[in-house]
């Protein structure tokens, strides 16, 4: 099962290696990882999507993260109302006969063409994992040449 957790860490040398090293040393799977600075420059924010086979493993992952000296807080989004997004850049075939069809697909999502040249277009899409997945399925028939996704970021509601 996939779980989204966020980790507030001290913005210090080597902290990403500590977190990544913990996952590899203990055999936990990272599905995606996004790191950024926060309003407070001394703190970084990591959103990690982990693949944990059960509740015990998820608990261990959270406890082990908390044990790292540079980790300030660990938040599990599984049981929290939150907003989550990821961004995808998709390079697709963009030939004259498909242009209208592609435009109507894009309309259904938060997605737009950000660049096009010759027979290729780059689409930027933002949404929840499911939406991105659905969009990619719809675009599949036009021919996807390249795909880059950011991994998920998440924020709690309220507070």
């Amino acid at each position: 099962m996939k779980h989204t957790i966020s980790v507030l860490v001290e913005n210090k040398f080597g902290v990403l290696a500590r977190v990544a090293g913990l996952f590899s040393a203990r055999g936990y799977n990272i599905a995606s990882l996004a790191v950024s600075e926060t309003l407070d420059a001394s703190i970084s924010y990591m959103t990690i999507v982990v693949d944990a086979k059960d509740e015990t493993v998820l608990e261990q992952i959270k406890k082990q993260l908390n044990k790292l000296i540079d980790v300030i807080t660990v938040t599990d989004f599984t049981k929290k109302t939150h907003v989550e997004r990821e961004l995808a850049l998709v390079k697709i075939n963009y030939v004259a006969k498909d242009k209208a069809k592609i435009a109507s697909v894009l309309k259904k999502y938060v997605a737009k063409i950000v660049h096009s040249k010759a027979n290729t277009a780059i689409i930027e899409a933002v949404g929840e994992e499911e939406q991105i997945k659905a969009l990619l399925e719809s675009l599949g028939k036009f021919g996807i040449k390249e795909l880059i996704r950011t991994g998920k970021i998440a924020i709690t509601i309220g507070g």
Binding site: F13, G14, A17, G21, A25, I69
Partner: peptide, 16 residues
């Protein structure tokens, strides 16, 4: 050395 000892220390520091 901080890289090598990361998984076998409670914590480590490189002082620059």
């Amino acid at each position: 050395v901080t890289g090598i000892t990361r998984p076998i220390t409670k914590h480590n520091f490189l002082v620059k």
